[in-house]
């Protein structure tokens, strides 16, 4: 029934990265940063341009009513610092874009995609391919959760989705249950600790919170992939999100057949 990745009995394979960058400190980034700090990651960089909104509180564990209006990175950083005094923390209030994304990858062992826009997810995936650093993709849309580890030489997000979809609710119109976001964010953290063992392969984890059914889908690198395919040379570009809203939501791309 439920099938989501966790290191479990392969304890020996668990590899705790020293420096991790969490892009987005919302529904996914809060549980992911908690789980990574608990796992003993030495340094976390939190990146998010937004301030805490009251509609975030039901699912973003670091943000409490008194934090409304504060920068999310500061609100989360304060709680992480209090609970994990030896954790190294860097707080970057700002947006990830084509001009700064490569430096983020180069400065960390791994990046967590806890963002809420479709275009930024593809930007992060392209940058992961260029920088040859692992990225943990994650998304929640209604009762569906997705997560995948994008590894150097492995399939990337464009192998999975080809082109960014245009007709998904990319704004806060999409509902999300607090525990679904927590589950996917925590799953991303466990994937961060577990490098894929096989080159050119990855597992897409699909959770259905409505039925509690889940599955893992084997994803292969596509030879003609525009980002990671043979001879491909991705260009990092800033594309506007389809429907910009004051408080964007976590959203996942619509799947095309991998």
């Amino acid at each position: 029934m439920l099938a989501i990745v966790a290191p479990g009995e392969h304890e020996g394979w668990v590899h705790v990265p020293a420096r991790v960058c969490v892009v987005g400190v919302g529904g996914l980034g809060c549980p992911a940063s908690l789980a990574l700090a608990r796992a003993g990651v030495g340094h976390l960089t939190l990146v998010d341009p937004d301030r805490v909104d009251v509609s975030n509180l039901h699912r973003q564990l670091w943000h409490h009513p008194q934090d409304v209006g504060r920068l999310k990175v500061e609100s989360a950083g304060q709680k992480l610092r209090a609970q994990f005094p030896s954790l190294g923390l860097a707080l970057r209030p700002g947006r990830v874009d084509a001009s700064n994304v490569l430096a983020l990858f180069e400065d960390h062992d791994l990046v967590i995609d806890a963002t809420d826009g479709v275009q930024v997810k593809f930007l992060l995936s392209d940058a992961a391919v260029l920088a040859r650093r692992p990225l943990i993709y994650g998304g929640v849309l209604r009762f569906e959760g997705l997560a995948m580890r994008v590894q150097p030489d492995g399939p990337c997000l464009r192998c999975l989705f080809e082109t960014p979809p245009v007709d998904v609710p990319t704004c806060a119109q999409a509902g999300v249950l607090g525990s679904m976001a927590a589950l996917v964010g925590a799953l991303q953290a466990t994937l961060a600790l577990r490098p894929e063992q096989e080159k050119g392969l990855a597992w897409l984890h699909v959770l259905d919170g409505w039925t509690l059914a889940a599955r893992t889908v084997r994803v292969r690198r596509r030879k003609d992939c525009a980002a990671c395919g043979e001879g491909a040379n991705p260009v990092l570009r800033d594309e506007a999100e389809a429907a910009a809203c004051p408080t964007p939501t976590s959203t996942s791309p619509v799947r095309s057949a991998p």
Binding site: L2, I4, A6, P7, G8, E11, V14, P31, L34, A35, L36, R38, A39, G40, S179, A182, L183, G185, A186, L187, A189, T190, A192, L193
Partner: peptide, 11 residues
């Protein structure tokens, strides 16, 4: 793993 506690608690 301590990260898995977050996964199990969320579940």
């Amino acid at each position: 793993n301590p990260a898995e506690h977050v996964l199990l608690g969320s579940l």
